[in-house]
Design a protein around this nucleic acid. Structure first.
Lengths: 200, 200
DNA sequence: TCGTATATACCGACCGGTCGGTATGTTGTA
DNA sequence: TACAACATACCGACCGGTCGGTATATACGA
């Protein structure tokens, strides 16, 4: 099944919006900016999206789905390799130059804050989804190595830490305009993960 | 020497702006909002600050200075206790209810992004300052325990990790509207720190 | 000591421009 | 000819920022 024309247009809008968010942030990105980037007009935009917030939701949703696809693509036989490979993949995808670094979910949720409940909910569920995948990976790797949780919810906390390390390193990297921070922080996380799992 | 009237007014503006940033974000906070909160008029605002960006710089600067003061207040005799006490202080100051959680430097830098170089520079130097303090604390604690760096720049990376853990946990906590994430992530960081330093 | 000159701190109307959003017209295609 | 997929033109609200003016305090000279 080929993509319909409308679907192609919507993807173009999402692409443009995503790129602009990583450059300027969500609220600084106007609908006129998106129209200019896509070559469309404002009428065309509002034919496809009811509001700017609706577009924000769509961008976050696609971002999450894309992340899930990438994550699931790295799954291999060995759960330990899967976990570390996943982290490496996150680093490389975030630090590759050309496009600005960042996470649209973090961006939008940070900007809209608790005030805009609609966007906040989508962002929260997106974070929860990613956290669940991280926790599953950590649990699988631990099982494979015969490592038990030291305390109730330890692996859940470790998954939150991984997510925070990723998000936080991108915040700092954006401010410093230096993606090296991301690599450093995630390497450090892998280090402590190895220590926890008593690996080399 | 008593505070001049102007200085009091400026502090009120900074207070209002800071609170609004943590609620709605920087770009969503209009100068009219600040005027309403302080009981001033727009003319009065621009008498004290040349532009909105200038106010953003001032808010970040005061935030950093306040952070430095708080950090230096926790310094005790034992460098190890100082380090862990500092982390605890960060958690408690970030999770205390009443005021919204977050970091104005992270907020503003995330929103303005690489586009607004003026704000980005201030944010970057603020992050660098905090990182330097963290690294010093880690180095002091390691010296006190006789722990050497496993590799060049390891303590620097650990300091970046602490900063990222803090920033990232606040990003997630804001989206989920649940400060428990901050506690969990920083506890996890302390755990791995203890493991690295071979503590109980 | 008393009037004048000046600086400080603030007011509120107003400006050009941009924002998100809408109403209506046009075109390609099946 | 009917509908999807746009374009055009426009709206009112609001944005950051400016401007002329003003009340009050302080400094200073005669």
């Amino acid at each position: 099944m080929v993509q319909s024309k409308a679907e192609t247009t919507r993807q173009n809008i999402l692409d443009a919006c995503q790129a602009l968010i990583l450059q300027k942030g969500f609220s600084a990105t106007s609908i006129n900016d998106i129209c200019k980037a896509t070559g469309l007009t404002k009428g065309a935009f509002f034919y496809h999206y009811a509001s700017k917030d609706e577009l924000g939701k769509a961008v976050m949703s696609r971002w999450s789905e894309l992340g899930e696809q990438i994550m699931s693509s790295v799954v291999g036989a060995d759960p330990v390799e899967t976990l570390f490979g996943c982290i490496d993949l996150m680093v490389s995808s975030a630090t590759q130059s050309g496009n600005a670094v960042g996470c649209v979910v973090g961006e939008i949720s940070q900007e809209s804050g608790p005030s805009n409940s609609m966007l906040a909910e989508v962002a929260a569920s997106s974070f929860d989804g990613a956290h669940a995948r991280f926790q599953q990976m950590i649990t699988d790797a631990a099982d494979h190595l015969g490592v038990k949780q030291a305390s109730e919810g330890e692996f859940a906390r470790m998954a939150w830490s991984l997510q925070a390390a990723f998000q936080g390193s991108m915040v700092v990297a954006r401010a410093k305009q230096d993606p090296a921070v991301i690599t450093a922080v995630l390497n450090d996380y892998k280090q402590s993960l190895k220590a926890r799992f008593s690996l080399t």
